[in-house]
Design a protein around this nucleic acid. Structure first.
Length: 260
DNA sequence: CTGGGGAGGGGGCCC
DNA sequence: TGGGCCCCCTCCCCA
């Protein structure tokens, strides 16, 4: 699988990405069909819904609700060091290619014989080991296993197994794609394009069975169900079929499938 | 109440 | 790794 977007279920993470990199600049999408039209100047924040806009204003890079980041996010745990840069910025105020945790690991790595007893300490649980290999084994078996592939969203409690998944999710908070017509913001460009069709009235998805056309492919697909004698969603009890899952749910909630 | 349209969200796949 | 696209799903509203 090229990319994994699996959401990690449990909440146990110390990893925080560099959000300054994740929060891309706002994209104002102007379709070519609007060229030449006197587009209004969009008053952005006040016309957006509070739910859609508040994350942008509430959280800033300097006010990230970061969890206490241990200093143990060493390269041996398998994570890009940049992911923890945000935390190190908070107190160091400067950036360097080598992160704080790297610096902390260096003396230990250059001392493979463990001259001093209990010199190798786990930054996550504070357990100490006399040899580096002992610490490494501990990390692989315990602490790293708890934090492996855990990228947490700073806006909500969701966690993802990959940075790419987290980046995409964060767009649902930052809503970088803004409609120039009405100012509404969206997480992805194609969502914005679909929204723009509501302004233009463009309906590129036509039903082959009737004259209806739709701006959204999903809505056409739902519509096509209405032409089918056997709908996609079937009640397990009475075998009645429905064109939509929601209709099936309503049917089940109405009492058809009460007796199991 | 049911069925259907409109609009939008989110994860997964492909390039 | 990122963007585009697809699919599935949900919510709201209306006839």
């Amino acid at each position: 699988m090229p990319r994994s977007f699996l959401v990690k279920k449990h909440i146990n993470s110390f990893k925080k990405p560099n959000y300054s990199e994740l929060e891309g600049t706002t994209v104002f999408f102007t379709p070519h069909i609007y060229k030449g039209l006197p587009l209004p100047v969009i008053p952005q924040p006040e016309i957006l819904s509070p739910a859609a806009y508040s994350p942008i204003t509430v959280w800033t890079t300097s006010s990230l609700p970061l969890s206490p980041l241990p200093s143990d996010l060493s390269p041996i745990s398998g994570y890009p060091s940049s992911l923890s840069d945000t935390s190190s910025k908070d107190h160091s105020g400067s950036e360097s290619p080598r992160s704080d945790e790297d610096e902390q690991m260096l003396p230990k790595l250059t001392d493979p014989h463990g001259v001093e007893a209990e010199k190798f300490q786990c930054g996550l649980c504070s357990k100490s080991y006399s040899t580096y290999s002992g610490l490494l084994k501990h990390k692989q078996l315990h602490c790293d296993a708890q934090t492996r592939k855990s990228f947490s969203c700073k806006y909500c409690e969701k966690e993802y197994v990959s940075l790419g998944a987290l980046k995409m999710h964060i767009r649902t908070h930052t809503l970088p794609c803004v409609c120039k017509i009405c100012g509404k913001a969206f997480s992805r460009p194609w969502l914005l394009q679909g929204h723009i069709r509501t302004h233009t009235g463009e309906k590129p998805f036509s039903c082959p069975h009737c004259n209806r056309a739709f701006a959204d492919r999903s809505n056409l697909r739902a519509h096509l169900q209405t032409h089918s004698d056997v709908k996609k969603y079937q009640c397990k009890n009475c075998s009645k079929t429905f064109s939509r899952m929601s209709l099936l749910h309503k049917h089940e909630e109405s009492g058809c499938c009460v007796a199991h």
